[in-house]
Amino acid sequence: MEVFFLLFYEFFKAGLFAIGGGLATLPFLYEMADKYTWFDVSILSDMIAISESTPGPLGVNMATYAGYNCGHAAAGVPGGILGALIATLGLITPSVIIIIMVAGFLKKFQENKLVTDAFYTLRPAVTALIAVACFTIIQTAMLNIPAFQAGGGLLTLFHIPAILLFALLFIAMNVWKKIHPIVFIAVAAAAGILLQL
């Protein structure tokens, strides 16, 4: 029973101190693998692969998966489900509390000159951060850097079918602005299978 309290405590801690997105929870998971017998480091790479190949926030996926493994080891499938629930709720509880406090503060002071001054320069800065993330996403989706570094020549660097698909999708979403992003994701998944991307 106490394993579930420990699970909540550990993931609450990870949720409280992991700043800046899903991968920031990784060091905490390594620490848990070290400290407890819930899962070992080799399972962590499975966890990352599964989290990256399913929808949803990475950190949450990792918590659900780790919680299931840990609870399953303690009390079978029902334990796994309970563990998944507890780990996931533990992870999100600190940030929900903090954000609700910050949101209340911002609501109260949104007309304040200091707040509008701060956001005036913050918005272009955050747009740039998102643009960098976008740059990285484009790189991993369309360039084959390992093949290029292995000396395969300039042509091997570019993943031509992916670049063509990107261009088509990008044009399509600017021509038909009403189409929902889900449609593009579904079309691209099908294209990925057909073209063996």
């Binding site: 992916a162 698909l165 994701i185 691209a188 294209a191 991307l197």
Partner: peptide, 14 residues
């Protein structure tokens, strides 16, 4: 393969 396609769509969407 599906994920490779989805990554391209996500890149274009973002």
């Amino acid at each position: 393969h599906a994920l490779a396609g989805i990554r391209v769509a996500v890149a274009a969407l973002v």
